[in-house]
């Protein structure tokens, strides 16, 4: 390039040529420095994640065994015993919380997405932001006041209500965002065929947004399943809780479906994070060991929910794209 210097060059072109070498070197050095800094920080950010996972797998893996999954806790000093009660508790509390939270959350999100500028839509958006900022322990306390106290006893139901309140804002916001991503032209195509709004929402908009909505729901379930605070004074914990026994004795006493269901939810229930928290503060080595194992199981449960979500979304995406 420098060889072609001619009288026709403008001053600007001459300047560029003169500075070319130094500018180019500086650019390369800056690039190399910034790339290594950002790369290093990325690795730093990943360290806690892998450290936690590695440590829990190492500690928990030593004490985990089949008994751990199929037995309720045994008294101290006795061999074996597990956390079946906590696994079951986590599942039924999350399940009931989902049933309570998902339908209103999705319908509210539809309202907000379709009527974004109405007073109710604005209030909803603002309130979900506020609700998602409320500490989970406060939500637990609230559930204690409105359910545990009037009923006179702790229960899995109260725990599920607290957890549902925790899930509500996340589901509303993710669902609303996903609905807004559905192209306007899809709605128009359906309305243009003469379909009413509600029909369009159910049979066109919802399926188009379902992947994102499901992802939002399951991630919020996974998040809630790991919460301890809202369950402390609602579900409380129950070392003798055993779904199998409740159902068996219910059938033996010829109780109906709803009576059994009532017994399932109307008594204190344990959960994995609760068990972890309680065991970790006891002075007995075997309880500490079981606490690590409970941590591992909790992580596996949440990981499974995540993996299941991604697989489901992927397969549905493939089916829709053909």
């Amino acid at each position: 390039m420098t060889a072609h210097t001619t009288a026709h060059q403008t001053n600007f072109q001459k300047l560029i040529e003169k500075n070319h070498a130094s500018v180019s070197l500086r650019r390369k050095v800056t690039n190399a420095v910034m790339l290594s800094v950002t790369g290093l920080m990325t690795i730093l950010a990943l360290i806690p994640l892998f450290w936690i996972i590695g440590y829990v797998v190492y500690k928990g893996g030593q004490y985990i065994n089949l008994d751990f999954f199929i037995h309720t806790p045994r008294p101290l000093g006795m061999e074996g015993g597990g956390v079946l009660n906590a696994i079951q508790g986590t599942l039924i509390i999350s399940g009931l919380a989902s049933l309570i939270a998902i339908p209103p959350a999705i319908l509210a999100a539809f309202y907000a997405a379709n009527n974004p500028n109405t007073p109710l839509g604005v209030v909803l958006r603002f309130s979900t932001d506020v609700l998602s900022g409320i500490p989970s322990i406060v939500i637990g306390l609230f559930a204690y006041a409105i359910i545990v106290k009037p009923m006179g006893h702790y229960s899995g139901f109260a725990g599920a209500v607290a957890m549902a309140m925790l899930m509500l804002p996340t589901i509303i916001r993710t669902t609303e965002e996903m609905l807004k991503l559905v192209p306007h032209t899809l709605r128009e195509a359906s309305l243009g065929l003469g379909a009413p709004e509600w029909k369009t929402s159910i049979s066109v908009v919802l399926p188009a947004a379902l992947n994102g909505i499901m992802t939002g729901i399951l991630l919020s379930v996974a998040r809630a399943a790991g919460e301890t605070a809202p369950l402390l004074f609602t579900a409380l914990g129950n070392e003798r809780y055993d779904l199998g026994l409740i159902i068996q004795s219910g059938i033996a006493q010829k109780q109906g479906f709803f009576e059994i269901l009532k017994r399932v939810f109307d008594q204190p229930v344990d959960s994995l994070p609760l068990t972890l928290w309680k065991y970790a503060q006891q002075p007995y080595p075997e309880r500490i060991e079981q606490s690590w194992a409970a941590a591992l199981v909790l992580m596996i449960v949440i990981l499974l929910i995540n993996i299941f979500t991604r697989l489901w979304v992927e397969s549905r995406k493939r089916r829709l794209q053909g």
Binding site: T185, L186, A189, L191, L193, G194
Partner: peptide, 15 residues
């Protein structure tokens, strides 16, 4: 809308 149908600018098949 049944008697007067519409085709849009971009293909918009339902999923």
């Amino acid at each position: 809308r049944r008697r007067i149908g519409m085709v849009f600018q971009r293909p918009n098949p339902f999923p």
